[in-house]
Design a binder for these strands. Structure first.
Lengths: 168, 168
DNA sequence: TATTGTTATACTCTATAACTATA
DNA sequence: TATAGTTATAGAGTATAACAATA
């Protein structure tokens, strides 16, 4: 019965601290990939919170819905690997999503330890709407990526994610 | 008396979930700037944890030390703006850093509400060592950024951070 | 024995609100 | 009144460990 608290107004969504990062000498740190990755990611989350008016589904949950949508019937372990999360961390989120009737958990006959995850009809509807506003958000991000560099920018992010994930 | 628990072994540092993200169809989400920003950032943090053997100073604390080093005498509010954090979130971290004698808080005579933050001699030493291993970590990140693209990659990250931060 | 998922628990990080001291 | 910083508190997010059911 943990279930992510139904998420009314989240306590975390940064909003007040949204100041301009400059105004100070960031020095060596400011040229660092690591630091800039952090603040860019945070800014992206903040922007998501603004363009997606329905705050009941934060970026983490959206990713889960999108993944289930694209891989109907996948298990929680598989899902956890895709987004690099322990399955124990997934349980409460999925509980929430199921309580909201967006996702269904079904025991497959051939392996009754696992669950097959699928979007419900309502889940698909909500996904459509969400996707529209997330697409708008992405378009805003695109504006900030130097023209024609989007692909190489995203590829670099992927390379960082993949190259650094397992053993280095 | 909160002070970030002296941080022996952190509970958070992801480690087990470090699986390869592929092996599944990421679909539309996988082409998204937002999602890739998230997993790249997480991978970067994980890698930091590996190359920086001394886990008493995580990326967030390192950023603070580096900023104080480059802006001796700055206040907590100024520091908070630079890393986009509320000053109330800074208090416990700074408490920790001060307890470890890496940072000093001094009341300036002209405005005795604030603190002037500075690295102690010991703080500078620790900073030197940390910087060496963080530089190694950065070098590893560089390996993954397409040759000659580092500058434009970092610039894009900065643009995302700056362009999305205030009003959009 | 190994794997899937759940529960219990712990800890980090961050925010908001109320407060004190100083300006 | 306004600002710097602290304290108290709350919540999201994630991990580990122990467990039950199933393979």
């Amino acid at each position: 019965m943990r279930a992510t608290k139904a998420r009314r107004r989240a306590a975390e969504p940064p909003d007040a601290a949204a100041q301009t990062p400059g105004a100070l000498n960031l020095g060596w740190l400011g040229q660092t990939v690591g630091f800039n990755l952090r603040i860019a990611h945070e800014a992206s989350v903040r922007a998501y919170l603004k363009s997606v008016s329905d705050l009941s589904t934060l970026p983490g949950q959206f990713a889960i819905l999108a993944l289930i949508d694209d891989n109907p019937g996948l298990t929680q372990v598989a899902l956890g690997r895709a987004i690099m999360r322990e399955s124990s961390s997934l349980t409460p989120v999925l509980d929430d999503l199921c309580n909201r009737r967006l996702v269904s958990r079904v025991r497959p006959p051939h392996d009754r330890r696992s669950y097959a995850l699928r979007l419900t009809a309502r889940g698909k509807e909500v996904m459509e709407q969400l996707k529209a506003s997330v697409e708008a958000h992405e378009k805003e991000l695109d504006r900030l990526v130097t023209a024609g560099q989007r692909t190489s920018f995203v590829d670099t992010l992927k390379r960082i994610a993949a190259g650094l994930t397992p053993e280095g």
